[in-house]
Design a binder for these strands. Structure first.
Length: 669
RNA sequence: UGGCUUAUGGUGUAACUGGCAACACGUCUGGUUUUGGUCCAGAAGAGUCUAGGUUCGAGCCCUAGUAAGCCAACCA
């Protein structure tokens, strides 16, 4: 009985608690409420994964509700795209709903609010109202229309609805308090006049409810038990609850809003507004450009629903700001594709290889395993002949023993074929290698260090291959207050190659995923046609060789370079403290190193910075040792002794820790 | 300057009512291998933001700081 208790995240704990307190599981209900004003991105996947994930875990319904209260920004195109993406991820919603379905009910409740003196029509300019609202640190003041009579409010509101007024001339506000510490509670707007065509209600309405007024009541109407959203809505919760308080029937479920930290991915942006700018400025080819962090972009790039779901699951749920490393996403897609993608051979940067002892005109069709990770994948035939393409990178005229690939005089294996030995090269007038000549041997049992992929020139088919790099060169492109995210655009995020692929790929269909052996995972792009194959590189294979090569020439990593500059410089005293903490736990050799480091750093430390550490608790020996060492440096640099210093040293001399005593003795004399 | 939230290895999350910090990614070794992939074995890396306190014992509790994020759209 190895009852492995899976630790629960804080949202699961809340649900479990509600269940334990008597809420029947059958009352559990969730919702995913996108605004149809853009495409879903990887960040939304977290929200989707949480709410739909709970739906699956607790066997509870999950509604897909489009929050469509702003006809100026919302479009049917986005509704369709969102539905496609959620479905593609493999989630099933219970009901497809729209906030606009509740416009009448919301209106009726608003009238009731007015009658009860809980709402009023304000007729000022937005500037005047903003002024009265105050600031986070200063309370607001009541506006001149705050005490209109019920009859007057009712009349105005009905005429707003009837379309008698211009946009901006009147609004309906909840009457709460202009002095409330929470800005959102200072008589928030419930309705504004918008004479716009709505994608679903057409021209039926010219007043539209605001988010806060709509969201909680929609949850209530749908009897959502847990309304989960991201952290920036935390301050809205108070208002969410206030609106609910006015209408809730105690016999019905009262929805609970709870907030979690949204997902951020390194080197990418998640704001729909900013993504839209990339689309509109033509930086990318559309919302589904494979470089985009949108779900449709990832799909086109070759990501699988499985991989994305695994990713959000792995990322976890908590309340602190986070930036997930893209390498985790890449790990998830490799893990999935490794198991499922058929292996094929493709040469992206070709150089001609001639096997001089292979008969001209001869061809053989050799067996190739489709996927060694999958026994059921079977075999296919690949054509072999005297003239092949291999990767330029796979040949060097001369190489050291660490280079496993082809070089003159050395043998390598051709994947699925024979062993060859480099003999000579043919060069053009500029010294570029145009042909590599080699001989082959049919004894394939030999042990050789390297294996190369190849294609037969005569049989190969041409294909366009699109390689992608990150869109931004900064880890957090939209987190700089002084710089626009567009400044960090990577000019080389797309590279288009003319490649040669094995003939079995002729029948590949749009969306098919493959592993190009030794290179990475690729899928057929939707731009492909019967005449022209187009592949996207989904992700490369892990490449420890390339990593080693790169380390040799650090200046060839322009993208990584940024990293260092963006890392804040820690203050010397902080580093000293850090080193001190672990000092006593270090083995002797490392202690010496740490000591040297502390002494080095101490040169940059002032006495004012060091003095507070004199008060370090007696039991924190490591910190005291680091302080003593630093103090020694300061004294050597001419610091005058004072009583604080003497006392600190004397205390150290009497300590039970021998290292501390020793260090103290060293500076006593 | 007010309110709210958060603080654990390079990154993300754990640690049930206090019991000598775990998992994943990443990094580094070594082995296997017709992919420098996969797989296998192993290692390094945090004493939990700081300073006090309670306790036999604190990442968890208390106090005071510090830092970061969010909040003043007729957006959601």
């Amino acid at each position: 009985m190895s009852e492995e208790r899976k630790s629960l995240n804080f949202l699961e704990q809340i649900i479990e608690e509600d269940l334990a307190n008597g809420m029947p599981q059958s009352k559990l209900r969730f919702r995913f409420p996108p605004e149809p004003n853009g495409y879903l991105h990887i960040g939304h996947t977290k929200a989707i994964g949480i709410s739909f994930g709970f739906g699956e875990k607790y066997n509870a319904p999950v509604n897909l509700r489009f929050d469509d209260t702003n006809p100026a920004k919302e479009e049917q195109e986005y509704v369709d795209a969102i539905k496609e993406d959620v479905a593609w991820l493999g989630y099933k919603w219970d009901k497809e709903l729209f906030s606009s379905d509740y416009f009448q009910q919301l209106y009726d409740w608003a009238v009731q609010f007015i009658k009860e003196g809980k709402a009023y029509v304000d007729s000022q300019t937005s500037e005047a109202m903003a002024e009265q609202k105050g600031t986070p640190t200063q309370p607001g003041i009541d506006g001149p229309y705050r005490n209109r009579t019920v009859a007057e409010n009712l009349d105005l509101f009905q005429r707003m609805k009837a379309g008698e007024f211009h946009e901006g001339s009147h609004i309906l506000r909840a009457k709460i308090s202009m002095q409330h510490p929470n800005m959102l509670m200072r008589d928030p707007i419930m309705y504004r006049i918008l004479k716009k065509h709505h994608h679903r209600t057409g021209n039926d309405w010219c007043i539209y409810p605001m988010y806060d007024w709509t969201h909680g009541e929609s949850d209530y109407i749908e009897q959502i038990s847990h309304s989960l959203c991201s952290l920036e809505f935390k301050p809205h919760r108070e208002l969410y609850d206030w609106f609910l308080d006015q209408i809730t029937d105690p016999n019905l479920i009262r929805p609970k809003q709870r907030e979690f930290a949204r997902l951020n991915l390194s080197y990418t942006i998640m704001s729909k507004r900013k993504l839209l700018k990339l689309v509109e400025d033509g930086i990318v080819r559309g919302w589904d450009d494979p470089r985009m962090p949108t779900i449709s972009g990832l799909r086109r790039r070759g990501y699988t629903p499985n991989a994305i779901r695994k990713f959000v699951e792995t990322v976890g749920v908590a309340k602190r700001d986070n930036i997930i490393d893209v390498s985790l996403l890449e790990f998830c897609i490799r893990e999935d594709l490794n198991k499922t993608a058929p292996r094929v051979m493709a040469v992206l940067d070709p150089v001609k290889l001639v096997i001089t002892n292979y008969p001209e005109g001869k061809e053989e069709w050799l067996d190739a395993e489709n996927n060694q990770e999958d026994d059921s994948a079977g075999f296919r035939k690949v054509p072999f002949s005297r003239e092949l393409y291999i990767e330029k990178d796979d040949f060097k005229e001369e190489a050291n023993s660490k280079y496993f690939r082809l070089s003159l005089g050395n043998e390598v294996r051709l994947k699925n074929a024979y062993i060859i030995k480099g003999e000579s090269v043919v060069k053009d007038s500029d010294g570029n290698i145009t042909e590599i000549h080699c001989t082959y041997s049919e004894d394939t049992s030999k042990k050789v260090k390297g294996t190369l992929h190849w294609v037969s020139i005569k049989h190969a088919i041409k294909a366009e291959v699109r390689e992608y790099d990150r869109l931004f060169m900064d880890e957090a492109p939209d987190s700089h207050q002084d710089k626009d995210f567009m400044e960090f655009l990577n000019p080389e995020s797309l590279k288009i190659l003319e490649a040669f692929v094995e003939p079995s790929l002729k029948s590949a269909k749009v969306g098919d995923r493959f592993q190009f052996q030794r290179l990475g995972y690729f899928n057929v792009d939707s731009d492909a046609s019967a005449e022209k194959l187009v592949f996207n590189k989904t992700v490369g294979l892990r490449d420890t060789w390339a990593k080693q090569e790169q380390e040799k020439q650090p200046e060839t990593k322009p993208v990584q370079q940024n990293n260092n500059t963006s890392q804040p410089q820690r203050k010397a005293i902080d580093v000293i403290q850090q080193l001190g903490k672990k000092y006593t736990n270090l083995p002797e050799a490392k202690q010496l190193k740490a000591k040297e480091e502390i002494q080095q750093l101490a040169n940059e430390v002032s006495f004012d910075e060091l003095q507070p550490l004199f008060n370090t608790a007696a039991k924190k020996v490591g910190t005291r040792i680091a302080t003593i060492i630093s103090l020694g440096v300061l004294l050597k640099n001419g610091l005058q002794r004072n009583t604080d210093i003497e006392e600190f040293i004397n205390n150290a001399l009497e300590d039970s820790n021998l290292i501390l005593v020793k260090e103290a003795q060293e500076i006593t004399f």
